[in-house]
């Protein structure tokens, strides 16, 4: 399975500045791709387009030469983790996960197993408001993986959490990813986060966003902070103009 993105242009108003322009890339099956760029560069817009939430753009999204979205149908099972957890506050943790599962006899068992896997086995019947921010993200992570996505979209999913919590969520994410091997598009504005997670990092310019550089990261996982910092340093040396002031490290 290979996803091909060709976005010619995306504008929010007919005569306004385009927010995306000539963004083209292709994914390999099971590849973890990080999208890095300054905030407001249209990375979230890009994910919304891929998810089918935003259809007002010119360009093509194809999976093995078939259109990704056709009417209400989507060629791939998609999981999405948003910037906020976006849980239904009136549903329990378990019901939030069950919400996205089709009616199969084993759905409750599957949801419970997935919540166990993210360490929420004791909080199945809690409501989101009773959970910490980190735990809410775990529910969102479970909801994204329980559908066994072929394509996982993540829009700065670990923003505004403390560093140890982010570390835990990173290793949890990598565990689940290596078990299920979805293709991941992970938007972040933090270079170190991108380098510590991804197989390939795409760098976006300011709006109208284009891809200005891509970097393959060959390091084996788990990657130490020292390794990641070294790669980041090399990148900054080689492309000071690209990253200066535009991407936080």
């Amino acid at each position: 399975m290979s996803l091909q993105l060709e976005i010619d242009e995306k504008r929010y108003t007919p005569n306004g500045e385009p927010i995306l322009s000539q963004v083209q890339f292709q994914t390999a099956a099971g590849e973890f791709i990080a999208l890095v760029g300054p905030s407001g560069a249209g990375k979230s817009t890009l994910l919304n387009i891929v998810a089918g939430l935003d259809t007002q753009f010119s360009g093509r999204l194809t999976v093995d030469n078939q259109p990704l979205h056709q009417g209400r149908d989507t060629a791939l099972r998609i999981g999405f983790m948003f910037q906020e957890a976006r849980l239904m506050p009136w549903l329990t943790v378990l019901d939030n996960v069950l919400l996205v599962l089709a009616h199969t006899p084993d759905r409750v068992a599957r949801a419970e197993a997935m919540l166990q896997a993210v360490g929420l086995g004791d909080a199945l019947h809690a409501f989101p408001s009773q959970l910490s921010g980190g735990m809410q993200r775990r529910v969102a992570l479970a909801r994204a993986f329980v559908v066994q996505p072929q394509l996982l979209l993540m829009d700065e999913p670990f923003i505004s959490l403390d560093a140890p919590t982010v570390q835990q969520l990173h290793s949890l994410l990598l565990d689940l990813w290596s078990q299920q091997k979805p293709t991941v598009l992970f938007v972040t504005h933090t270079l170190l986060e991108a380098l510590s997670l991804a197989d390939r990092v795409l760098f976006f310019s300011r709006a109208p966003a284009r891809i200005i550089h891509q970097q393959h990261v060959e390091l084996t996982r788990p990657r130490s902070t020292a390794q990641v910092s070294a790669v980041a340093e090399q990148l900054l040396m080689a492309h000071p103009e690209m990253l200066a002031g535009e991407v936080s490290v």
Partner: peptide, 10 residues
Amino acid sequence: SLLQVAQVFK
């Protein structure tokens, strides 16, 4: 934003 969740997850 909650409706979008429902939309993405079909």
